[in-house]
């Protein structure tokens, strides 16, 4: 079972002080409507969390970071395309508006999850004492991307992690058990807004995620993310020593980070599998929310 540390998660609704500040900056910098499980868990380490974010933020707003995530996304789609299709028939019962919103929710996670993986790999590298091979570039030479949530991005709406509805509760338990999770990810909590759809999709997905081909694809994706994290342009001023200075449990944080790095590739492929029911692989390898360069955006580049 992948436990995510001993600290309690900090939800967006509960965040205040530094956590609230960092959550705001994460949404602006990563261009996302909500805060995923990684960050909610890391935020439980209240000294580590702002220090980690302040160390990572310069990287997270670079084109290199965005491009790395784009590569991860494309590889995940190609890998998912080789697996069995979910062909989730319950999508037909959703109706026009709910289908529209479900597709928008999938786009949200299709966009943010690869960024989370590259981010997590970069944090892990730093905690392992490794640094990007090309780290140390002058910031003036590095292209930055625009800030802010894309106008049409779906809000990160999700059901409670402890839902009242019995069938959703059972579904979450099954997902957690099968994927060895201690907490249910935002993605499944969002898909649970459409419980029939998630239930039918999970029934198809469950045997796939237990297969060797899926595990190989996940391992490969993790390796890709690590390699890409190595190529990012800045060093990350974060280390176990720094965490100890802050009075945090460096081992526990490193373990938690490693668990996220292990979990995210399969999550990315799962979302790609759900998305392949709605879009072609050729469309899905593209970023659903391409980012403009920040300088052009400032100078009034076309929307």
């Amino acid at each position: 079972m992948l436990g995510f540390g001993k600290q309690k998660q900090v939800t967006e609704y509960e965040a205040d002080g530094e956590s609230e500040r960092v959550y705001h900056e994460i949404k602006q910098t990563l261009r996302v409507t909500g805060i995923n499980l990684n960050f909610r868990t890391w935020a439980g380490y209240e000294k580590f969390f702002p220090a980690m974010w302040d160390a990572m933020r310069p990287l997270a707003e670079t084109r290199a970071f965005e491009t790395a995530a784009d590569c991860v996304r494309a590889e995940a789609v190609r890998a998912a395309d080789k697996l069995l299709r979910l062909e989730n028939q319950s999508r037909a019962a959703l109706g026009e508006s709910q289908a529209y919103q479900l597709r928008a929710a999938l786009d949200l996670y299709q966009y943010i999850n690869p960024k989370l993986l590259v981010f997590t790999s970069a944090v892990k590298l730093a905690l392992d004492g490794a640094q990007p091979e090309r780290g140390g570039k002058a910031s003036a030479d590095v292209e930055l991307i625009e800030r802010g949530v894309p106008a049409r991005m779906y809000p990160m709406e999700m059901v409670s992690s402890e839902p009242e509805e019995e069938r959703i509760k059972e579904l979450f338990e099954d997902i957690k058990q099968t994927l060895s999770l201690s907490s249910i990810n935002s993605d499944y909590r969002t898909l649970a807004l459409w419980p029939d759809y998630l239930s039918a999709g999970w029934k198809k997905l469950k045997p796939i995620v237990q297969g060797d081909e899926f595990k190989r694809a996940s391992d490969n994706l993790r390796e890709t993310a690590r390699k890409l994290a190595h190529t990012l342009p800045f060093p990350v001023p974060l280390s176990r020593e720094r965490l100890e200075e802050l009075g945090e449990d460096a081992d526990e944080i490193a373990t938690t980070t490693e668990k996220f790095e292990r979990l995210l590739p399969s999550l990315i492929i799962n979302i790609a599998l759900f998305s392949l029911d709605w879009k072609t692989p050729e469309t899905l390898v593209q970023s659903p929310f391409p980012a403009r360069p920040r300088r052009n955006a400032v100078q009034g580049g076309a929307r």
């Binding site: 019962a93 959703l94 109706g95 026009e96 508006s97 709910q98 529209y100 919103q101 106008a151 049409r152």
Partner: peptide, 18 residues
């Protein structure tokens, strides 16, 4: 009721409607 709702995109916003 929800499953009968249609959707209309109005600029960057959308609305659901019966």
């Amino acid at each position: 009721f929800q499953s009968m709702q249609r959707v209309a995109q109005l600029g960057d916003r959308f609305i659901s409607y019966l």
